[in-house]
């Protein structure tokens, strides 16, 4: 096990999350079971008050988790200097068998916890608090997810091994790789580019008509196609190397940390799209604010990501 200050930091905060998350979990279960706004029993008053403790804890966890996740990537990038063979976070993350899965899992949790806050916001807007039960049930599930994440963190850091040779991202993100997503490199990459822009256009149209189900599904598809096209096509223009497909290297200093900008805009855009659409369905009313934020960030993402191949073409008069 590596005992670097970064790892200790992450584990210490994990411990805090665990402590407060557990308290919130038990309260949530109670609220989900006994919540009754019409009742005037002392238990109901108590639960009303405790619901704020849970909300505060979840806000806290989410607000600390967001930057901590970036810090996690940052740490993985740094560990790549220590671990033989790794060039960036990809090598480090994939040095354990569940690395990639853990990574996507962490992102999924960010969506869940973020959505919880949105649901909470809507719940507290209405005197009938229509979502209280659901939001606490959602948290109870989210807590299980959190537990697994903390377990994975610990397992990940304890199984990191400086002396073990790991693959660098060049090997992981190529057609020759044995990983589950290697098939994407065998397809003509232009297909993904066409699909990306097609989805993007459909998404923009969907913001005009604001059909929640359409916005929701297109945002979900958009995340996936955005990441795949980033790996197979757009990333190569960030690196200016037709063979460099790594989604992690762009988070490093050599590329001005552009990866952080790219992923954060994608996260904000799709997060607001997805949660806005779900809330539109629940509230039976079009959540314009969420759609607007979503549209703006999704456009920013598309602009940033398109700028790379276009400037390349203008400079060199040819595609990579």
């Amino acid at each position: 096990m590596l005992l670097t200050p970064e790892i200790i930091t992450i584990l210490a905060l994990d411990f805090i999350f665990l402590f407060f998350g557990t308290i919130a979990f038990f309260i949530s279960i109670r609220i989900a079971r006994y919540w009754d706004l019409n009742s005037t029993t002392p238990l109901q008053y108590k639960l009303e008050k405790q619901s704020f403790l849970v909300a505060t804890i979840i806000k806290y966890i989410f607000v600390v988790k967001l930057p901590l996740f970036l810090f996690f990537i940052f740490t993985a990038n740094k560990l790549s200097n220590v671990i033989v063979g790794a060039m960036c976070a990809a090598g480090v993350v994939n040095s354990v068998s569940f690395g990639s899965a853990m990574f996507f899992y962490k992102i999924l949790n960010l969506y869940i916890f973020g959505f919880w806050l949105v649901l909470n916001h809507f719940d507290l807007k209405n005197e009938n608090q229509p979502y209280t039960r659901y939001k606490f049930l959602l948290y109870a599930i989210g807590f299980i997810f959190l537990l697994v994440e903390i377990y994975l963190d610990i397992d990940f850091f304890t199984s990191l091994d400086v002396s073990k040779l790991v693959s660098c991202c060049g090997a992981l993100f190529s057609a020759a790789s044995t990983s589950s997503f290697s098939f994407i490199f065998t397809v003509n990459k232009l297909y993904f580019v066409y699909i990306f822009y097609a989805i993007f256009v459909l998404l923009m149209i969907s913001y005009i008509f604001k059909n929640a189900f359409v916005v929701l599904s297109l945002n979900l598809i958009y995340v996936f196609i955005a990441i795949i096209s980033l790996i197979v096509f757009f990333g190569t223009y960030i690196y200016q190397l037709p063979t460099h497909h790594c989604p992690f290297c762009m988070l490093q200093k050599n590329y001005d940390y552009i990866g952080y900008v790219v992923y954060i805009t994608l996260y904000i855009g799709t997060f607001f799209g997805i949660s806005g659409a779900i809330m539109s369905i629940l509230e039976k009313k079009k959540e314009k604010f969420y759609y607007n934020v979503s549209a703006i960030f999704n456009v920013i993402y598309a602009i940033i990501i398109s700028a790379y191949p276009i400037t390349y073409y203008i400079k060199h008069g040819a595609w990579l």
């Binding site: 200790i8 930091t9 210490a12 905060l13 805090i16 407060f20 403790l53 505060t56 804890i57 806290y60 600390v64 930057p67 901590l68 810090f71």
Partner: peptide, 12 residues
């Protein structure tokens, strides 16, 4: 990370 969030956590 090792200081400010921990302080705030203690006040929750």
């Amino acid at each position: 990370f090792l200081t400010v969030p921990i302080y705030i956590a203690a006040t929750i």
